[in-house]
Amino acid sequence: MRARSGIATVVLIGALPIALIVGVWHVLAATGMAPPSLLPAPSAVAARLVQQWSSPAYLEHAASTLLRLFAGFGIAVIAGIAIGVAVTASRWVGATVTPLVRVLAPVPKIALYPAFILTLGFGDASKIALVVADAVFPILLATAQGTAAVEPKLAWSAQAAGASRWRCLLTVVLPAALPSVLTGCRIGLVISCIVVFLAEMITSTDGLGHLLVRAARSFQTVDMFVPLITISLLGLLLNAGFNAVRRRLLAGFPETTE
């Protein structure tokens, strides 16, 4: 009943703080309370944003960031789901992997970055490895917890119908755990987005993170905002895309609040 007008109100209320921030930002810049070298006007940032997004050089940087992001995230999804399922399926794997994960999960993976640089070099490989190291844990944990929580009677129904152990794992346990697995993947996706940017800031010769550091070194304040806004929008876009895929995959599942 209240759906239409309700949604409109929600959107309006939600736009409020963002408009407020941009407004205050505009006033600060326009009145000269903040010098442009410290805080450029929002209009200047927006103009630069549009200019950069149509510049092939900038898009190339964005492309290398995306390439590392997807490579790392892809490996993390495959490894995380495979290990997570194995933890539930095999008592032996579970007993080995669970304490390892318990020890490694709270370790700040970014600290491993120097080790990746030393063993894999300064190129893409070390950055992708860092993304994998960071993104794999939420996916692995969500998969292990999700598959362990599957109602055993679902698996029994499949086994009684003649499904082998592996068949049952792949056609029943994993799909039944899909809501949890996808939640883990979404967390992993945002983490990938963040980590790839940070790795590029620490050492890189290309990518969005590198652009931010390069702008900071030459005190080009406007150019510092552009990659930050790009990565934020990229994150929102990827998240929205992921949610669309998720809705399709979970068509039969009862609604969950997320």
Binding site: I194, L198, M201, L212, V213, A215, A216, L228, L234
Partner: peptide, 16 residues
């Protein structure tokens, strides 16, 4: 607002 801030690496704000 929180959704917009979520994918921004907080440490990346360091230079600014």
């Amino acid at each position: 607002l929180l959704m917009m801030i979520y994918p921004v690496p907080k440490a990346a704000l360091m230079p600014i």
